[in-house]
């Protein structure tokens, strides 16, 4: 079989979607742990942020891979959703999806779209200003600026609310996405029960941890 045919197959697309999702979840976990340091130690947060923002490997290798991964995941998600809609040209008059599946599993496109919109806001808040600061204005390195920039953003109740809402949708996305990605790559075995439990814990701890961080800075600074 030609490899090009294989890559166009429904299963290859599922696997690609799952692998990009797993990669993004790894990124999410490390982002969470870094942000959590801002609650306990502004100095530690500044040190790690300075390292991440100035390390050539992170900036010029990992960051581009991450951006490609994000774009790929969203484009593939919308493409698959469109194909799936075409697979049922006439809808049911009565469809009781709740009888056999979770809301989170049936509405990944909705939760994913909210997360995408959130990423737009998040980039506007942090990534674009950071890029302008470093590469357009070419400012001098200031290793202690990161904590203040973070705390400042969460002064606004609207922004804090939008972040919290987005994290709730992220939680729903992960609730299905974590376990679904393992099933897609063919991992359904004696470890599945345990990995499901871990997946549900991940879907709660990470997004609600982010909510805690946002609320902490909103009410403490």
């Amino acid at each position: 079989m030609a490899k090009s045919t294989m890559l166009k197959s429904s299963i290859a697309k599922k696997v690609a979607m799952a692998l990009s999702g797993l990669f993004l979840m790894l990124f999410l976990a490390q982002h969470f742990f870094i942000n959590m340091t801002s609650v306990f130690s502004p100095d530690t947060f500044n040190s790690i942020s300075h390292f991440m923002g100035n390390n050539p490997l992170v900036q010029y290798v990992i960051q581009p891979i991450l951006i490609v991964g994000v774009i790929f995941h969203f484009i593939m998600g919308f493409t698959l959703d469109l194909k799936n809609r075409n697979a049922r040209p006439v809808s049911y008059v009565k469809f009781d999806g709740a009888a056999n599946s979770s809301w989170a599993s049936r509405n990944m496109i909705i939760s994913g779209s909210v997360v995408l919109a959130f990423l737009g806001l998040h980039f506007y808040d942090f990534w674009f200003p950071e890029m302008i600061y470093k590469y357009v204005d070419v400012n001098a390195l200031e290793p202690t600026r990161y904590f203040h920039e973070l705390a400042e953003k969460f002064e606004s109740p609207v922004r804090t609310g939008l972040y919290c809402f987005s994290f709730l949708l992220l939680s729903l996305h992960l609730w299905h996405g974590f376990n679904s990605s393992f099933q897609s790559v063919g991992a359904n075995n004696k470890f599945t029960k345990a990995s499901h439990k871990f997946g549900y814990a991940f879907a709660i701890v990470i997004p609600f941890g982010f909510i805690f961080i946002a609320l902490f800075h909103h009410f403490n600074h």
Partner: peptide, 14 residues
């Protein structure tokens, strides 16, 4: 299966 126009599985479990 793909040629017949079926959709992609998203593991809803339904």
């Amino acid at each position: 299966m793909d040629e017949e126009g079926f959709g992609n599985c998203t593991n809803t479990g339904a």
